[in-house]
Amino acid sequence: MTMQVFKTIMAASVGMAMAMSPVLAAEKGSSGRQAQAKKQMEIPHCTRRIGTVAIVEPDNQWWREMSLGSPEAIIKLFVQQSGCFGIVNRGRSMASRNIERAMADSGELQSGSNLGKGQVKAADYFLQPDIVTANQNSGGNAIGGLLGGFMGGTLGALAGGISIKKKEANVTLSIVNARTTEEEAMTEGYFRKSDLSFGGGGGLGWMGGLAAVGGGGYQNTEIGQVIVLAYLDAYTKLVTQLGGLPDNAAAAAPKAK
């Protein structure tokens, strides 16, 4: 190999390396963005309990159109794993408790069962997961609409809905003071499938916990996973906004008469 040929090969190699460096940098940056996105998809953890919540299903039951279960299970998982709230069950568990109470009142339970008045823990807040509407949009195969409302104290338009075709979800999460009925916060959450680049369930171990709380198939479908992560976005924003709420919601509320 002549010196001239050697110099030509070296020059070409250096040129290729320089041309590839932006690509490598972009890939590195992409990895950084993925790591940041994955961090945002982790359930937040609170250092203190904000209060006790009862989860309220929206009336429109939009999830039935996609053969999914109630989003109550999604929020229940977030509440349990975040430690931000205690949770009281006002569904079938309350109905079963009322049956036990009726048997206690009629003298059917064993002596010393200690089931009576003044034992049910109060909900400090009502937490409602929702999308804006449940009207089918035939053009985009979407469920959604537009709602004007207060968001973080500022009047704005809350765009919500679920696009099955695009695999994206835009949801809302609101929290209402059980004593005053004041809406303490409403947040919007958004997620799309193109942001989910970590395999099934986004590589997030907690996603499998949905089955344990009756997740209704959310963890088993692409659109279900997208909806879960949209609610996680809304839930993270919500607990961040609620950092200034009182430690004792009962003491802070007007006295009952």
Rank of each mutant, 00 (worst) to 15 (best):
N137A: 04
I87E: 09
E188F: 00
S111Y: 08
Q225I: 13
R90P: 00
N114W: 05
D124H: 15
M207E: 10
V171E: 08
L155F: 02
Q34Y: 07
G244T: 14
L210Q: 14
D105E: 12
G91W: 07
T133S: 09
F6Y: 11
A37C: 03
V120N: 06
N98C: 04
V53G: 00
G29W: 09
L109V: 00
G214S: 11
A12C: 05
Q219L: 03
M94G: 00
G91I: 01
G243E: 08
A122D: 11
V5A: 13
I9N: 13
M18W: 08
F126C: 07
I131T: 10
S138C: 11
A134E: 06
A251D: 12
F198V: 03
G215H: 03
V176W: 04
M16Q: 07
A11T: 14
V79C: 09
M3N: 03
Q40I: 08
N135A: 12
L147M: 13
D59F: 06
E65Q: 13
P71N: 14
G153W: 04
E108C: 04
C84Y: 01
M10F: 04
E72F: 02
S138N: 03
D105V: 06
S113I: 08
A159M: 07
G205S: 10
N114S: 02
S21C: 01
S67Y: 12
P58I: 02
S31H: 05
Q225T: 08
T133F: 02
A185T: 04
E184Q: 11
L242C: 01
K38G: 10
K167T: 02
N141G: 15
T187A: 04
A256Q: 14
K39S: 14
G140H: 14
T240F: 01
Q241G: 00
Y125D: 02
F6V: 14
M66G: 04
Q40T: 07
A230I: 01
T172N: 04
G214K: 10
T236K: 12
A19C: 09
G160A: 04
V239C: 01
A122T: 06
E57R: 02
V226D: 12
F150A: 09
T187G: 06
E57Y: 01
Y231I: 06
A252E: 01
L204F: 01
P58V: 08
K76G: 06
A159N: 09
